[in-house]
Simulated scan of single mutants.
Amino acid sequence: MAPRRDYYEVLGVGRNADADEIQRAYRKLVRAYHPDVNKDPGAEDKFKEISEAYSVLSDPETRRRYDAFGHDFRQVPPDVDPAEWARARAGAGAGGQRRQARPGDFGFGEGVDLEDLLGGMFGGRGRRHWGPVPGADQEAELTLSVEEAYHGGRRTITLPGGRRLEVNIPPGVTNGQRIRLGGQGGHGSDGAPAGDLLLITRIAPHLRYRVEGRDIHASLPLAPWEAALGAAVAVDTPGGEAKVKVPPGTSSGRRLRLKGRGMPNPRGAPGDFFAEVRIMVPARLTDEERRLFEQLAAVSRFDPRGRS
């Protein structure tokens, strides 16, 4: 199995990158590698790797722990402070018998004794018995399409290590929302309970929809006469077809709101759906269409550039 790449390397940013730089890098890579756009056989694995890296580096606390503990940060108990860990790690290497641990080098079995390190942090000497220790909470990313996030439902996921779980996704989950699965995290010791698994939802880019919070945006192509005269136009939403009323004199860029047709909200009002007008013209005109457009041009006093 190939070693996991550093998350900063995956996103192509430096370790001192700020949140905006990380987000820009993520969006650029998603547009290039999303499986709906990129049909290369390796694009899906690349997309998952990018999404995992972003889920860790976009959260300040998770990023802090990743910087301290590397890829094994989810295995380190949450109450272990990275600064204390770094001091203990340096002390563990001072005896000269063990290889000094390096940042991100925590396989626990390659020369670093976890019990000795933790013992040194809290004043212990050598090995000691800690008693039952509850399992650590773990995190994993769950990428959903807009339709899956809208409708919810059952989903089978595969976790690192090949473990498969059936997950019940509630309707209307939003980007970054956490779904807690009790007892599915790290194993406890000496009979202590397991930790929880936190699934962080990520809504994948969509060819038609753009999700902002609980609001959904989509383009609405209109013919010139529909925009000029007004019309009732069918529009596809994740919840099914809806009708939007186009007022006469509508121009490109106008947003037409369908109240309550955005993402569902189990605890309150749903989001809205916004149809953003784009006026389209025929690529090729028939003789009759050309004649009528020329007649309109001759009689109309409308100046779209506002010149007097």
Rank of each mutant, 00 (worst) to 15 (best):
E241L: 13
R257I: 14
A88W: 02
E49N: 08
A101F: 05
I179Y: 01
L29Y: 03
A53M: 02
F47L: 06
P248T: 04
E147H: 11
F274P: 02
K39L: 12
L181T: 06
E288T: 11
A17P: 07
A234Y: 02
G12N: 03
Q75H: 10
L199P: 01
N175R: 07
A136C: 06
G120N: 05
R24C: 01
S219K: 10
G119F: 05
R278G: 02
G70I: 01
R89H: 00
E44V: 05
T286N: 03
G260R: 04
F274K: 04
A218H: 04
G131N: 11
H34V: 10
E61K: 12
R257T: 15
D59I: 07
G182C: 00
G96S: 09
E141Q: 12
F122V: 14
R301Y: 04
P224E: 10
A231T: 02
E139P: 00
E61T: 12
R128S: 11
E276A: 02
Q138M: 15
R24V: 07
I200V: 15
Y66A: 09
L197A: 10
A92N: 05
P171H: 11
R154T: 09
A32K: 13
G172M: 08
Y26A: 05
R15V: 10
R63M: 10
P264L: 13
G70N: 07
I22C: 07
A17K: 07
G95Y: 06
F293L: 15
D81T: 03
Q177D: 13
R257Y: 00
A68Q: 03
L142R: 02
E141D: 10
G188W: 05
V281A: 10
G249E: 08
R15L: 00
D113P: 01
L197N: 07
A297F: 08
L285H: 11
R163W: 05
S55K: 03
G213Q: 10
Q75E: 14
S189A: 14
F73S: 08
A228M: 12
D79Y: 08
E61C: 00
K259E: 13
L159E: 12
E110Q: 14
R31T: 00
L292A: 13
Q138S: 09
V167N: 08
F302W: 10
A101Y: 03
L285W: 13
G182W: 01
P270V: 06
V80L: 15
D236R: 14
E139Y: 15
I279M: 04
G91M: 05
Y26D: 01
G271S: 09
A227V: 03
D137H: 15
A298P: 01
A223W: 03
A2S: 12
D105L: 02
G262P: 04
V133I: 15
I203W: 01
V112L: 12
